[in-house]
Structures are given as C-alpha cells and as structure tokens.
C-alpha cells in the first residue's frame, strides 16, 4: 500500500512541478476572480456582492464567482481575503458593521490592511416606529425618552455596534432608551413591526417593504441633512443632535499590497458597474445610491469611521 501511495505522491509532485514552472504572468485577469461575501446568503451584503459580481463579469471578461464566508461579524470572510495572495484575484465585501466590530476589539482587521476599490452603497441609519406607535414624531419620541429614561426599547443589531454607539450618545444627551439587541435581522424587524419594541434603528433599504406598507414609520435620520427619499423626516442635526458620519456603507475591498494597476483597474470596473442602469435600479430600490469615490477617499472614509466608532466606544457610558 505504501508503495502505491508513494507512486501517486511522486507522480503528483512531478506533474505539478512541471505545471508550476510553466505558469506565466498574463494580463490581469486571466482566471476567475473570487468574490468573498462576508455575510450569509439573503442579506444586504449578499445581494450587493452578488449583484456587483454579476455586473462586473461583463466588464472584466472572466467569471466572478461569489461565495459566502460568513461568521464573526464579517471577520471570517476578511480573514480569507487577508490570507489569500495580494494579486487581485480575491475580492471581499467590507461593510460598516465589520469596521465597527474592529473598533469594539473583535476580529483581526485594521483599516490599513485593505484597499477599498469601490464604495457601492451607503445609507444613513434611521429610527422607525411601528404603525400604531403613540410617538408620531422624533420630537415626541425624544420628549418621552427624557421624561421616562430607559422606558423606550429600541431594537438594534447588538452591543458595541454603530447602533449601540448612537443610543449611548442619545443617553448622554438625556434621551435614554434601552438597547434590545437582535442578532438576526428578520427577528429585529418582526419585533418592531409586531410592536414588541418601541422603535428600530436600521437603514431604510433593509426595511423598505415595511416602510412602503406603512408598518414602520420613519421619524429620525441620523445625518446632517435630510435623506432625499424621505424629505419629511427630520435630520438629527436639526434637533441639535451631533451624531453623523456613522453611515452604513458597503464596499468591495482587496488586500493591501495588491499591485496599484490592478487596484486601479478594479476601481474603474466597479465605477462602471455603479454607472449601469441595472445597478441604479438596484440601489434606488434599497435607498443606498452613493457617489463614486476614489480609492484614497474611500480608504480615508473607512479610517475616519473606524476612529469615530472607537472614540465613541471609549467614552464611559
């Protein structure tokens, strides 16, 4: 048996040594590019990654197979990006939630380990109340929170996230609300739609169907300016709340150290992707259309976001 095994191993090594030597560096891309989706199937990152991969195939001329590598707030997938060679053949989705998890001390990532080749989606987060909520506006909601600290329950994605940071900021302003974390988005939505929680912190695209059906009513957008799709909803700045720059962005990133010409090529590809009609229809449906950003600006945006969440988390609550 040993002899037979040995023969196989020897044959294998001989064959691969020959093949390996003959490998040539052709023009990028010469083989399929892996798109690592850092969250499970069906979610916002998944639809973004798969749609982008599908549209990028036409631009790149090779297949861009998307695969879900989920776990640890997106860090499992990024670990895979980081352990693959920096040759532009492994792309990963990098989103705000994952960056905020680094700031909370989770995962192995740091902003300077990635080059962001495309900021594909971005949206501020908002507070929504259920259809039959007694609090019809942001003013009423905040006034109630002031009068009854911690009585209002807000459904969020967890402790130590942007959601948590925002609620902590509100607590400091005297508008204390209780953070009720739901790990699964569907359970989070159901809880507020079913009025088991008083409000939900979420980006509008993820709850679009509830907003359109009227089951969830937007009352406040955490940004300096109003959201163009929700002109009647006040921005936090109008109410004297200085909490912005925590937008939910979704980007495509490669490992730092990827040759600059490949980074530039990918940046151009994703700029073209976002310019297509298909993409426009997709982002309009999810309220996440954003402007094209250079690689430097995108990297800087991730860095700023990271620092901001880190600072806010470091402050005593």
């Amino acid at each position: 048996m040993k002899a037979a095994l040995g023969t196989f191993v020897a044959a294998g090594i001989a064959a691969t040594a020959f093949a390996g030597g003959a490998l040539a560096q052709d023009a990028y891309p010469e083989r399929p590019i892996d798109m690592v989706i850092t969250f499970g199937p069906g979610g916002g990152s998944d639809t973004m990654g798969r749609t982008a991969a599908h549209l990028a195939e036409k631009e790149l001329g090779v297949a861009v197979p998307a695969s879900n590598v989920s776990g640890a707030s997106g860090n499992a997938g990024l670990t895979r990006v980081l352990t693959s060679p920096a040759d532009g053949y492994t792309l990963g989705t990098l989103i705000a939630l994952t960056v905020s998890s680094w700031a909370a001390g989770l995962g192995v990532g740091q902003p300077d380990q990635f080059d962001v080749v495309g900021v594909l989606q971005s949206s501020p987060s908002m507070l929504f109340v259920p259809k039959d909520s007694p609090h019809k506006s942001a003013e009423e909601l905040l006034a109630f929170a002031k009068a009854n600290p911690k009585a209002l329950k807000v459904a969020t994605s967890g402790f130590g996230t942007m959601d948590d940071v925002t609620l902590r900021y509100l607590t400091k302003q005297g508008d204390a609300m209780t953070n009720v974390p739901f790990a699964k988005p569907a359970e989070r939505y159901a809880s507020t739609v079913g009025a088991h929680t008083d409000a939900i912190y979420e980006e509008p695209g993820d709850v679009a169907q509830f907003v359109q059906s009227g089951d969830l009513v937007p009352v406040l957008v955490f940004a300096d300016e109003r959201h163009k799709d929700f002109p009647d909803v006040p921005a936090s700045k109008e109410l004297g709340l200085d909490i912005s720059g925590l937008d939910n962005f979704r980007t495509i990133a490669v490992k730092k150290g990827t040759p600059p010409e490949i980074v530039e090529r990918l940046h151009k590809v994703f700029a073209d992707v976002t310019a297509t009609q298909e993409w426009h229809d997709f982002c309009a449906k999810t309220y996440t259309c954003t402007e094209n950003m250079s690689v430097e600006d995108a990297n800087a945006m991730v860095e700023t976001f990271y620092k901001k969440v880190k600072d806010l988390l470091a402050q005593p609550s």
Partner: peptide, 25 residues
Amino acid sequence: GIPGSAATAIMLGAMILHGINPGPL
C-alpha cells in the same frame, strides 16, 4: 418579509433582487 430559515432567506434575497417586496402590501 420575515424568512424563518436559510432557505427562505435566499428566497427573500431573490425576491428583492427581482423587485418583489414581500409584505402585507
């Protein structure tokens, strides 16, 4: 629009991609 399992979550993803927004509406 609440998927109870991985399988129905994928269906939800497909519906959203095709512009079908599940919900009472």
